[in-house]
Design a protein around this nucleic acid. Sequence first.
DNA 1: GTTGCTTTGTTCGGTTGCGGACGGTTCCGC
DNA 2: GCGGAACCGTCCGCAACCGAACAAAGCAAC
Lengths: 239, 239
Amino acid sequence: MRHQNRLLAALSEADGALLGPHLEAIDLPLGHVLVEPAAEIPYAIFIDTGLCSMVSTLDQGGRIEVGLVGRDGMATPALLLGTDTIPYQLFMQVAGHGHRIAVPALRDAVKASASLRTLFLRYVQTFLVQVAQTAIANAGAPAEERLARWLLMYHDRQDGDDLSVTHEFLSIMLGVRRPTVTVAIHTLEGAGLIRARRGRIRVLSRARLEEAAGQTYGPAETEYERLIGPLRRSEDSPA
Amino acid sequence: MRHQNRLLAALSEADGALLGPHLEAIDLPLGHVLVEPAAEIPYAIFIDTGLCSMVSTLDQGGRIEVGLVGRDGMATPALLLGTDTIPYQLFMQVAGHGHRIAVPALRDAVKASASLRTLFLRYVQTFLVQVAQTAIANAGAPAEERLARWLLMYHDRQDGDDLSVTHEFLSIMLGVRRPTVTVAIHTLEGAGLIRARRGRIRVLSRARLEEAAGQTYGPAETEYERLIGPLRRSEDSPA
DNA sequence: GTTGCTTTGTTCGGTTGCGGACGGTTCCGC
DNA sequence: GCGGAACCGTCCGCAACCGAACAAAGCAAC
């Protein structure tokens, strides 16, 4: 069976054989914490379905998202950069499943295969750009653009056009108030880009959503397609 | 002579011998552009003195900073991640000098030495955290905290307590208006944390500046000291 | 179909920072 | 010592967003 995870799917046969024996299928329920800040990380996780957020937990109890991982990559990229801990939390934001591999086994494989190393480091690059785009989006882009960007990033990482999110959740991810999210959703919905229902948002037009996201969306995804391969499986939904 | 650049200084003797012959001293004048977006990058640059910003250039002509490199690292980390181009611009924000190495020579050295690879990838990790902290700071932290963070980051990367910056420049780096910078500087100065003169800011108390920066400052620097070594050379200025 | 919880819609006043502009000051070159 | 440029301080009206709160609507369980 072909892996749903894009990174695993992109492996050469030899690299696949190197990792395969160490991969273990796991469930990733909603809210499951993959990594706690400063805690040693035992497994790298390749997500097949679902979404995982990397967030900073603030003293005041709030959380701010800095990165998003889905079937495009692994959690956490930092494991490839010589560290077993990170100062952020990783948790499942949309339930799904994936495969895990013990960190020592991952390290051995990466040490043994230059092509594997190259592929994984390229993913790190796309992730770095994604975080940089988050920084850019957070610097002044209006809530509506940030919302559009986030919806697109979610959309990129799953099949179909229905996204499961509440306003409350989006408000945390975007670092804004919930009413701000409500207003932004109405605007996008009024323009016909999405259709919002209780706990669910349907993407009606990716193309126009990308316009709405402005420059906050694009660079990370371009980088991914350039360095690794197609991000979305299916065709774009019609404009 | 011991390298001023922290990464080069941290090299083992063998790794130093590997890179040394390929290093070429260069001047880095103010405003010098090291990397243009999407343009192929011929050299990796290890900065000895001065400061280099990684910025996103917006359509409207504005620029937003996503990362800062000084004697702590190299420009650009992305070269270690299997790409020869990045979607951002790198330019010298404070003049200085450094050493450059042609990318193929860098790649050869990194391929040949696992310890070199490890060290450099650890630097990538610290840079990734720095960018993540930028995202966090940009998400709602008031201008004053962001200013404090930026001053500390500059201070970390040079000797002495005098920083050469104008309000105008800071406003670009922080993504706020110049008057907002002026007000924030007055606040910090009023509290006795800094002393501002025309085109110059003197750090009077690092410790209290770190307080003022809140949670925006710290994680990236902790990560650096944990993975690589001391960031600042000299002792902290008295509180 | 009623109860209770979750999610969504809306309101109010207040604050921060924006865009733009103007005047004052320091510094540099001549 | 003078002129000009760069830099700093301040003001205005305005828009976005915040914090808090409350009301309505969808959904689920019984």
